[in-house]
Simulated scan of single mutants.
Amino acid sequence: MSDYQMIEVVVRNIEIITPLVKRFTFARKDNQPLPPFRGGSHIIVQMQNGEQRYSNAYSLMSSPFDTSVYQIAVRLEEDSKGGSRFMHHHVQPGDTLTISAPNNLFAISPQAAKHLLIAGGIGITPFLSYLPELERAQGNWALHYCFHHQENNAFQDELIAGPWRDRINFYVSEQGTRLDLARLLADVEPGTHIYTCGPAALNDAVKTAAGRMGIADEQLHFEQFAIENKGGAEFTLVLSRSGREFIVPEDKTILQIIENNKAAKVECLCREGVCGTCETTILEGEADHRDQYFSIEEQNSQKSMLICCSRAKSKRLVLDL
């Protein structure tokens, strides 16, 4: 189970990037440097709104070579569970927030001969922390950035104005320019690693196209903080320590059932399969893993699962709770 160091930070600045995207700059309250991080890292931001607490994961988009501040970008989501709405409508410069120390599930691969970066919408943010690192290492890289229309083009102007403009390609659906994944991946050089961050549809399209091209799984890297499908067939949940049994219906998660019934105390920071704090040992049954936290090998071992998002493949699941 992950144990995160939590840090109090002051909101130094808030910038409106597009009608739906704001950039937040955080600094430590004591003005000391923040913990070091590498490109692709994320933090968890905790927000308190009365008795309601929100906890969301956001990619760090600032340079890993400047830890005087952290920067994140928050897109206001239409179906927000409260976090993005709170950040957009309630957080002001000078406010104090609690954040986690950085964790990295989307690191740049040191084995890669070339780095192919594919971003969709707000999925551009982790790549903004990649670029200084890749440039300092004189890495061979290219970025392909897709968005539906000009209101989704967060940070396009900054990328165009940067020193690496000739390595970046932009695709705007409403203007009729779309990324041809089949063509892009057909030309992938040996040793290239492919990194994708964006909506589930983009991640799935890259997985499908890469599979058709025979690109190995270990060359593919994905990040997506919002899990769009946590539903599935109902199953019986057994908590071994108390012996209590529950039915987990199609539209509820294990964590929701446990919390609704006050059946056990479980820590969970992110609720999106990213932080690892709700990791729970599997005693019997088979998990249907939906998280991004475990490696493929760890998921296949069926030793533990993240109960905020993952379900059961078996009809009965016994957990060490």
Rank of each mutant, 00 (worst) to 15 (best):
S59K: 02
P19C: 07
P102V: 11
D320P: 07
N56H: 15
D217N: 13
N49Y: 14
F106C: 06
G50N: 04
G39T: 02
E218V: 12
K313I: 13
R165V: 10
Q150W: 12
G191Y: 08
Q32E: 15
I257A: 00
N261Q: 07
K252M: 09
D320H: 11
G39M: 08
S55E: 10
S304R: 12
G123M: 04
A201K: 05
L239W: 02
G214P: 07
S310P: 04
L131F: 08
A210I: 05
A161E: 12
L220M: 12
D166C: 10
L321N: 01
M213L: 14
Y130R: 09
Y145I: 03
I282H: 10
L319V: 06
E189T: 14
D95T: 04
R167H: 14
D95F: 05
Y145H: 04
C268R: 00
P199V: 07
E245R: 15
V74N: 00
R136H: 09
A137E: 14
G121Q: 02
L255T: 03
S109E: 07
H221I: 02
W141Y: 10
F225K: 03
G139Q: 08
D291W: 01
Q224N: 13
K81T: 08
Y4R: 12
F235R: 00
G121P: 03
E78G: 06
E272V: 08
M47I: 13
V318S: 11
S304P: 04
Q175V: 00
F106H: 08
G40R: 06
I99Y: 03
N56P: 07
Q92L: 15
Y130P: 09
P199Y: 01
I168S: 02
P190Q: 05
D180C: 06
Y145D: 04
G232S: 03
T25N: 06
F147R: 01
R241A: 12
V74Q: 00
D320N: 15
